[in-house]
Design a protein around this nucleic acid. Structure first.
Lengths: 328, 328
DNA sequence: GAATTTTTTGCAATCGATTTCAAAATTTTT
DNA sequence: AAAAATTTTGAAATCGATTGCAAAAAATTC
C-alpha cells in the first residue's frame, strides 16, 4: 500500500526519474529498462498519486458538475453525458448536488475551486443568482464554466439553454388554434426557468386574448393532482391545462380521469420536458420537448473546446418543439 | 489566480506556516495576526489547494461512487444519499458511471485508487465479477468498500443487499395463493441480481408445482411490450406475469390493455423495485419493494463507521416486501 | 531590570510525483 | 583505439500545502 515511484525505482535499480518516464511513456528510455520497470510496476500493483501528479502539472484532470437536483432525471442525464464524454478524455467527474440556498450553492463553487477542477458545469436554472455569479467571478474567474439552462455575463461562462418562453408560448398557441379558449397554467417550483415559462404563457394569453389563469403546485404528482382538482372544480369551463413539468401533467391526468373527465375531449393536457416517463404514462402525455438531450451534448462539445482553448465561449439557445401524443 | 499561502504570507508579512495555521484554525496564533491574515485571505479570494493538502495529509477527502448505470433511478438515488451524507462531513464525491465490460469496471477501481479516495461504494450487482474483485484486492486492499447489491469475500468489503430470491419467491407465492396457476416471468438484462430473482421464481414454481415459463426482454418499456405480446399470444393460458424491473411491468401493462386484456382480472402483473413511476403508472403497478431507500441509508452509515474505524465491516441483507396496487 | 516562563512565530523537511540540465553510457565515425 | 555524436540516466529543484522543532517575542516572576 502507498507505494511511491521511489519504491519502484529502488526495486528496479533505477532512479525515480526513469520510473516517471516509463509511467508517462516518455521517449529516450532504453527498451530493456523500460520493460524491467514496467514489469515491476505491474507486479507491485502500483498506481500513481494523481494528487502529486496534479500538483506538479497544475491540473486536477477533474470536471466539476454542479447539479441543482441530481435525482431529477434531466439533470442526471446531462451529468451522465458529460461524465462519459470526459472520462474518455481521462477526466474524472466531481458530481455535487447543490444545496438549497443561493449562498450554499456559491459554497460549492468554492469547493470546486479548492479542488482545482479543469472546468465546471452548472446544471439547472437554480444557479441563476448573484451569489453564484460572485463566487465564479471571485474564485474561478479563469476556469471554463458552462451553464446549462441559465446565463451569466462573465467572460468565462458559456451557456446552453432552451427557450422556455417560446416553448410554453407555442404550446398555448397550439391549444388556442385548436379551439381551446380556457387554457390554464400550473407552475412548479419558483425557478428562473419556470418564471420564463409563465412569461410565455402570459404572452400567448395576451396575444390571443384569453384570460390567463395560473396556479402553483409543489413538484410531485400528488401535489399536482390536488391543485388540478381544485382548479377544475373552481373553473369548470377550463378545457386545457399546461404544466411546467411532465410529472405534474402525469399526476393531473390521472386525477382528471378519476374525476370522470375525458382526455383530451374534455380537457387537453400538455406537460414540459419530454421526460422518459411522459411516453410511458397512460394516456401518453403530450409535452413541450425542451431538447435536453441536445442541450447536454452541446454542453460536452462546448466544454471540450473551452478546455483546449481557454478563451472559447459560446451561447446557444435551443428552441423547444411540441410533441403531440394522446392528451391533446 | 493560483495564489499560494506564500503569496498570502508575503502580503501579511508573516511566514507560510502562520498562514497555514490560520487557515486550519490551529491554536497558538496571536489574535491580531490571525485577524490580519484572515482579512487578506478573504480579500484575495484565496482557496487552498486540496491536492497539495491531500499530499501531506495522505488523504483526498473524496469518496468514490461507482455506479453501473447512473441513469437508473435507483442507482442515482443511492449515489445521492451518499453524496449528501459525506458532503456534510467535508468529502467530495467522485461519481463514475462504470463501463460495459467486467474489465472496464475493474479499470475504474484503478482510477479510484490513483485518486486515493477514502472509501468506495459500488452500486449495482453488475460489479459482481472476478475482474472487479481482483482489482479491489490488488489496488485498494485497505480502502473501505461497500457493495450495494452484491458481495465479495474480501476483508475490506462490506455489503448491503436485498434478498432477491426471497422477493420474487414471495411475489410468485402471493399470486399462486390467490388462484393464479399460470405464472410467467419476464427477466431483464443478465445481471447477478436478476439471476437471483429467477431463482426465486423457479423455487416457487417447484414448490407450488406450476410450470415455470421465463422470457427475457431488453430493458425498455417497448422491449417488454413486444415480449409480453408474444408471450400471451403463444401461451393464452397465462394469468399472471412477474417482471424483473418495474419499467418492464409498466411497458407490459400498457400493451396488455391495448390487446384487450383486463388487468388484473385476466392477467395480474407484478414489477420489481417499487420505482417512483410504478406508482404513477396507470393502472398503478403492484411491485416487489426491494427497499432501496433503506439500502442506501444503511450504506451511508456503514461507510461512515468504516472510515472512522478501518476494520469495521458489516453484511446486511434486507428482505423485500410486496406492495399491492392495482395490477393484482 | 534581570531572569524565567509562556506565547508566537519561522525554518526546513516532507508528501509523491515531474522535469531540466548535466553526467554517464553507448554508439558511430574517424 | 581515440574522438565525436548520440542515447540513456540521475541529481536536484519544483508544485503548494503541513508540521516538528528551535528561536524570537512577550508576559511573568523575582
Amino acid at each position: 500500500m502507498g507505494l511511491t515511484i521511489y519504491d519502484i525505482a529502488k526495486e528496479a535499480g533505477v532512479s525515480a526519474s526513469t520510473v516517471s518516464r516509463v509511467i508517462n511513456s516518455r521517449p529516450g528510455i532504453k527498451k530493456s529498462t523500460r520493460e524491467k520497470v514496467e514489469k515491476i510496476l505491474k507486479e507491485s500493483n502500483f498506481s500513481v498519486s494523481e494528487a502529486a501528479r496534479g500538483l506538479v502539472n497544475q491540473t486536477s484532470r477533474m470536471i466539476g458538475i454542479l447539479v441543482s437536483d441530481i435525482r431529477n432525471q434531466h439533470h442526471i442525464e446531462g451529468a451522465y453525458m458529460i461524465e462519459q464524454h470526459f472520462m474518455k478524455l481521462g477526466y474524472c467527474s466531481l458530481i455535487l448536488n447543490a444545496g438549497d440556498t443561493d449562498e450554499s450553492k456559491a459554497d460549492y463553487i468554492r469547493i470546486l475551486s479548492s479542488r482545482r477542477v479543469n472546468a465546471v458545469i452548472l446544471i439547472g436554472s437554480a444557479f441563476q443568482n448573484s451569489a453564484v455569479e460572485e463566487a465564479i467571478k471571485d474564485y474561478i474567474p479563469n476556469t471554463p464554466v458552462i451553464f446549462q439552462n441559465g446565463v451569466f455575463s462573465l467572460p468565462n461562462v458559456s451557456s446552453v439553454l432552451s427557450d422556455d418562453v417560446a416553448g410554453t408560448y407555442e404550446a398555448a398557441a397550439y391549444l388556442y388554434n385548436n379551439g381551446h379558449r380556457h387554457i390554464a397554467y400550473v407552475n412548479g417550483n419558483d425557478t428562473p426557468s419556470n418564471r420564463k415559462k409563465v412569461q410565455g404563457y402570459e404572452k400567448a394569453a395576451e396575444e390571443f386574448g384569453f384570460e390567463p389563469l395560473i396556479k402553483v403546485s409543489e413538484d410531485s404528482a400528488e401535489g399536482s393532482a390536488a391543485v388540478t382538482e381544485t382548479l377544475v372544480n373552481e373553473y369548470p369551463e377550463i378545457d386545457a391545462i399546461i404544466y411546467a413539468v411532465d410529472l405534474l401533467g402525469v399526476g393531473a391526468s390521472r386525477k382528471l380521469l378519476d374525476l370522470g373527465k375525458r382526455i383530451p375531449q374534455d380537457i387537453a393536457i400538455i406537460g414540459t420536458d419530454n421526460s422518459p416517463f411522459s411516453m410511458l404514462s397512460n394516456p401518453r402525455l403530450s409535452t413541450i420537448d425542451t431538447k435536453l438531450q441536445d442541450l447536454s451534448s452541446a454542453c460536452s462539445e462546448i466544454l471540450e473546446k473551452a478546455i483546449e482553448n481557454p478563451t472559447y465561449r459560446e451561447h446557444l439557445v435551443i428552441t423547444p418543439s411540441l410533441v403531440l401524443r394522446e392528451t391533446t
